[in-house]
């Protein structure tokens, strides 16, 4: 009749504690199972569905080959005419053309590829303009976009350049000043120097007569 005596057997307290601990130990094991399961579960995160309206806004950038094809078409205009003249004055340089293109873009915002060459009177002028275009693309001053396959290529100021010109006037103007000083490297202006020196390089083949 020990159980009816006053005061509980102290061992019961210990057993209760052990039982409780066992419950949490089991719970912990379940949590571990859940942890492993969750870690091996991968959610599906699809890309945003595209609808027709959004797709029209996408403007893929034009590759160098698209540009070369386009300029070849322009150059075909001059295949015959050049033979008629023995001598022509080679008055354009790449830096002048860079300046001209940037000026036209500042005024008009965007140009089509054919507009760039509409005024060109000679094969060498087309080549100069084209080299200026490539140079400006390389300097990330402008981008060529094509709204859809076979559409006219459009030339616009690149977003970065536009932002830079808003934030600090040193960005694109350094290119402009470099081109304005012609082939003399702009002093105390590292970016201007690069622009001028590269313009120097690219103008060399351009000034050679095109056969």
């Amino acid at each position: 009749m020990e159980g009816e005596e006053e005061g509980e057997d102290p061992r019961w307290e210990l057993i209760r504690q052990l039982v409780e601990y066992k419950k949490f130990k089991d719970a912990a094991a379940q949590l571990q199972v859940l942890e492993v399961a969750r870690e091996n579960t991968f959610p599906r995160l699809p890309i945003k569905p595209e609808f027709e309206a959004e797709r029209a806004a996408v403007k893929p950038e034009v590759s160098i080959f698209d540009l070369l094809n386009a300029v070849n078409t322009v150059l075909q205009r001059f295949t015959k005419r050049d033979d008629l003249r023995d001598i022509f004055e080679d008055k354009w340089t790449v830096s002048e053309k860079i300046e001209q293109v940037m000026k036209a873009l500042t005024e008009r915002g965007r140009l089509t590829f054919s507009e760039l060459f509409a005024q060109a009177a000679s094969r060498s002028e087309v080549v100069c303009t084209f080299l200026a275009l490539l140079e400006l693309i390389r300097l990330k001053q402008l981008v060529c976009l094509q709204a859809e396959p076979f559409a006219e290529i459009e030339v616009t100021r690149s977003q970065n350049a536009a932002l830079a010109s808003n934030a600090s006037p040193t960005g694109p103007t350094s290119v402009e000043s470099a081109s304005m000083t012609g082939l003399e490297p702009a002093a105390d202006n590292p970016s201007g120097e690069t622009a001028a020196s590269t313009a120097d390089e690219t103008s060399a083949p351009a000034s050679a007569p095109q056969s």
């Binding site: 949490f24 130990k25 719970a27 912990a28 094991a29 379940q30 949590l31 571990q32 942890e35 492993v36 870690e39």
Partner: peptide, 13 residues
């Protein structure tokens, strides 16, 4: 697994 046994027990409690 990232969580040790003692950590899991504490977490369960």
């Amino acid at each position: 697994p990232r969580l040790s046994q003692p950590a899991l027990e504490t977490l369960a409690i």
